[in-house]
Design a protein around this nucleic acid. Sequence first.
DNA 1: CGTTGATCCTGGGCGC
DNA 2: TGCGCCCAGGATCAAC
Length: 299
Amino acid sequence: MPELPEVESLRRGLEPHLLGQVIARARVTLDKQVKNMPARKFEAALSGQKIIRVGRRAKFLVIQLERGDLVIHLGMSGQVTFRDPGKPDAKQFLRDPYTGLQRSPGQHRPDKHTHAVFQLKGQGAFQYRDPRQFGRLLYFEKGQLEKHASFTKLGMEPLEPGFTWPAFSQAMAKKATKIKALLLSQHPVAGLGNIYVDEALWRAEIHPLSSACRIPEPKLKALFKAIPRVLQQGIKNRGTTLMDYRNSDGSKGSNQEKLMAYGQEGRPCKRCGAKMTKTLIAQRGTVYCPACQRPPRKS
DNA sequence: CGTTGATCCTGGGCGC
DNA sequence: TGCGCCCAGGATCAAC
């Protein structure tokens, strides 16, 4: 689902289209997707504002405007696409074989799942589409974003310099929670979701039920290295997949081949050959290798 | 404070 | 062919 690598790929794709542009008009067609004010107020606040920066914090896309920030969280199925009126629309949506999401092989006209359109003054528009409607649109006046609950609670950015071994190991030492649940919580580390947590734990050979503070140091260090690694790999492969879509004829993205845990249940572990297991941990489908990710002593 | 469970929602896949 | 059912899951909030 959209996790840090997907949002970062999206950010990189949008940036050249949006930077320096002015939002002529914002139109929301599913009001409840705007979470922190009435939809009409949201629309009014955005219009006429210039886009200063296209950023990201954890899984949030942060579009910095002159007087505030437009914040988009994709939830489970959110998509943001740029539409250029000078270019042809795609005829149909394709199903991503890996995420299950319907994606356009190119730009598309608004459909029944398109819940917001941000028309630019120059040319084109960016559109928010979200079949499951779990995503959120927010607007903050300058400086207010940092004070909002969903931001103050966020942990370290795993791809930023602040993600250091001392910071990581100390944070882990304070928590007795199951490592899987802890990494999904966005605190102390932000940006991971179900796919990349399973990938990182597989790589570090840690059982998802392990208590965070009881993970032996060598394995914890392996996890510290695995987190940025799986995320960087995801960013790299997401990019590849997005490019494939443009000329798509059903060809698969390379990211699917790189996944070691997620979706691999029943298949042999790519490290030791044992049969990968799927269970429910922290209300999430969890895949791991029962042989090289040994369960904790207790429980 | 920790942890669990319900909630929001749609489309895909399955059994019949 | 189509219906009903179940499942997928990010974040939040209520309840123990």
